[in-house]
Design a protein around this nucleic acid. Sequence first.
DNA 1: ACTCCACGGGAACGTTTGGGCC
DNA 2: GGCCCAAACGTTCCCGTGGAGT
Length: 320
Amino acid sequence: MNEVTDALAPIEDGQRAENCFLFGPSGAGKTTVARAAVRELRREVLDVPYAYVNCWRDYTRNAVLERLSRDLVGAAVPRSASTSTLLDRVHRDFNGPGVVILDEVDQLRETELLYDLHEFRGLSWIGIANDEVDLLADLDERVRSRVSVGYRVRFDRYGEDTIAEILERRAREGLGPNAASDEVFETIARLADGDARMGITTLRAAARKASSEGLSNIPRRLVEDSISEAEQEIARKTYSKLNDHQRVVVDVLQEEGPLIQRELHERYSERHDDPVSLRYFRDAHLAKLEHYELVETESRAGKKLYSLSEPASIGRVAQP
DNA sequence: ACTCCACGGGAACGTTTGGGCC
DNA sequence: GGCCCAAACGTTCCCGTGGAGT
């Protein structure tokens, strides 16, 4: 948090901030930190223009620029505005300094965008990704030397004690001072295995159970059940975000177990009334399912087996 | 050597939509 | 209002590479 704040500090003097790059496993709080740092900055310097872009959803240069045009300079633009139009608009109307959060920046297909950002006077960015990727690798040599990443911040999974602390504070604020014992928080933290979201969801499930039993605090014995309920809840939520193609894939894997890519595509094609080609299937659907950690792959003997990840199958079974 | 498979680059096509232009 | 063009985007088709089994 301090490093990101440092990176943004020049904005308080009206200067362009340093670009920075946050990486680490999911559930480690990268997005939360980025947003909090920007929120803090906006408390110091009122109305610093900023934008949040999820590059998984908006992965083209055009889509990102459209978002910037809307959120950075408040100019609503028609959907199919050309890239050059958008570029011109932001150039004309944006008065730096300002900052944009590029979440899941490794999903960006057109990395020239980073150069576009550099060209906007006073604009800097915070990039977020799972792995430490070389964002600038694709850029032209001359361009690369000008676009710099001043800060690289590595995030690790939360430790058990940190999660226990988070849970304790949440419980105190949300449920009251004696909602559960330290032992309960510690147990949940251990079972959540470094994933804060899992821990919090479990706490919520446990509180729900306790309250439906008429209890005013959470007993230790409810924890195990709450973990699996939390897994289901998360898997269900993820499943509901999928489109019909991806749901068919999950259903197929649920019923027919591990399959190689080509077989998986064949089964899917049989069940979906408007299946896409194998080539597109790979990029648009399989990649997404892997990204959401709904499907796992295992390479063995030159083949690659696709199967449902454990929580996903639990959640799927629980589907109405 | 041959075959099967995963992977990904890239050209091309079809549809949609806004922006002129008459 | 009608017509046409350009741009973006989802999608398909084709192809080369490279790993691994037989």
